[in-house]
Design a protein around this nucleic acid. Sequence first.
DNA 1: GCCAACGTTGGC
DNA 2: GCCAACGTTGGC
Length: 153
Amino acid sequence: MKYWLFKSEPEVFSIDDLAKEKKQTTYWDGVRNYQARNFIRDEMRMGDKVIFYHSNEKPPAAVGICEIVIEAYPDFTAFDANDPHYDPKSKKDSPAWFMVDIKFIKKFINPVSIGEIKLNKKLGKMRLVQKGSRLSVIPLTKDEYDEVVKMGS
DNA sequence: GCCAACGTTGGC
DNA sequence: GCCAACGTTGGC
């Protein structure tokens, strides 16, 4: 099993929005970065665990856990000219962009802020806190995942 | 609101 | 294939 961190701006889509969905699932659309795309398309598997992270919040923080329930399929928002994530490069017969579905598991009792993550020596190698890392979908080791869950619970 | 870091685009 | 210009991300 693999472990991931997904960033979202809570103004756009928060973990509470996910928890409020009818089946507590959503499709993770709008990833338009090739490295992140490759993680989604090639590496994410059913049951992988995902830390949900709020960016552009005060402070930015890991706020809960979810899991992958549907593996990669074409991101249909790329085909829709009226969608903000529209990308004419992506064709239905050769899609450039993919998405997975995730399901809510739980919110952290204590959100883990980026400051706390930076202070924890065990988390020093997380790509989230490395300089210039702007990936919206980040792989975690099991140890990193377990540590963040421990801090949040 | 600022700005550093990064990815992408497009002219050459 | 290089690289300057540009747009975006996201912490502060």
